[in-house]
């Protein structure tokens, strides 16, 4: 089991309210990602759930038991930190076995569980090494191994892949998703990388200034963002958010159109602009368009490799049924 409920959870540091009263339900076995820009309170929220920070008010329930005042170890949660937080003076074996040692589990069981965790994480050959002798990816695997052996109700990941290089990050991302499928345990994952959020989550919680902006599945957030912030944050490249006359034509304060929902032509279209920088990814081309009179820079995503010249005049036409409308406050207009 791993059902977590946050009821009016609030956190203040002195006079600063980091998390205004907040409610959230995480179902058993869900992979939930907290995402938001730096300083939005996502890590603080995770630390509140972990018990590493005390709530100012409100309750945290884990499997319907009030865990608000329980110490971290009694919440049956395991956490994987951004910096791995391995014990540098202990071997990999001792690192993984540490939670079991603290729980006074007998040596034989400890060994069996360590071996099993090491096998599933491809760490068997490294059990007698110290963390300093491992690569970043291996270290993160040890941290995950240390979490697995506790058989927790839920795993908490605090930006676990931020210290890894891009290629390794993709690999580890898949490993964590695979682990979730295997264990079927609740996982709460904090990241500022919306690509990670989109690819991994069953449910994404978008945060800004400690407030939950929207909770939903990745595609829900992509197709029907609740407000301008979510619209701009989810999706890469970012949604083009246009204000002014074009928005007023649709009775909105702001309209949003994703780069992949704009058609580009050299001869005709709704909006005219000039080509700026083109990013060729092979599978896609991102073209940045200037002088449209709508935005300083609009981004268009075209499938495949498209050749355009810098400064060339170009016409753009948005797909009408893919335009998102927002009111003056920034909320979605249905």
């Amino acid at each position: 089991m791993g059902r977590i409920q946050l009821k009016d959870v609030q956190k203040t540091f002195g006079n600063v309210e980091v998390i205004p009263p907040l409610n959230l339900e995480i179902e058993d076995g869900e992979f939930v990602v907290f995402v938001g820009p730096s300083g939005c309170g996502k890590s603080t929220l995770l630390r509140l759930i972990a018990g590493l920070e005390d709530t100012t008010s409100g309750n945290i329930e884990i499997d319907d038991i009030d865990a608000t005042d329980l110490p971290p170890a009694k919440r049956s949660l395991a956490m994987v930190f951004q910096s791995y937080a391995l014990y540098p003076h202990m071997s990999v074996r001792k690192n993984i076995a540490f939670p079991m040692k603290m729980a006074k589990i007998d040596l034989e069981t400890q060994n069996t569980k360590v071996e099993a965790a090491a096998k599933s994480l491809n760490l068997t050959d490294y059990l007698d090494r110290k963390p300093g002798q491992l690569s970043g990816g291996q270290r993160q695997r040890v941290a995950i191994g240390r979490a697995i052996v506790r058989e927790p109700a839920a795993f908490l990941f605090d930006e676990p892949l931020s210290n890894l290089d891009a290629a390794l990050r993709v690999g580890m991302r898949l490993e964590i998703m695979d682990l979730h499928k295997k264990l079927e345990t609740t996982m709460i994952y904090v990241t500022h990388d919306q690509v990670e959020a989109m690819t991994m989550a069953d449910k994404i919680v978008v945060l800004q200034d400690g407030r939950i902006e929207q909770v939903g599945s990745p595609l829900e957030l992509y197709h029907t963002p609740k407000n301008k912030f979510v619209a701009g944050f989810i999706g890469s490249p970012k949604m083009n958010l246009i204000e002014g006359i074009e928005a007023k034509k649709l009775n909105a304060s702001t309209i949003g159109i994703r780069p992949e929902h704009i058609k580009m032509s050299k001869t005709e279209g709704l909006w005219k602009g000039t080509v700026g920088v083109a990013e060729h990814l092979g599978s896609d081309t991102f073209i940045h368009i200037h002088n449209t009179g709508l935005l300083e820079m609009m981004t268009v995503r075209i499938s495949g490799d498209v050749q355009v010249k810098h400064g060339e005049a170009i016409y753009l036409t948005p797909e009408k049924n893919k335009i998102h409308c927002f009111d003056a406050v920034g909320d979605r207009i249905l």
């Binding site: 110490p71 930190f81 937080a85 391995l86 240390r146």
Partner: peptide, 20 residues
């Protein structure tokens, strides 16, 4: 974070000081 990890792993204050 290392001490927090120890706390998550169930170490008491005394164990945190002795083992970590």
């Amino acid at each position: 974070e290392i001490l927090e990890a120890a706390r998550m792993d169930g170490a008491s204050l005394r164990e945190e000081i002795i083992y970590v």
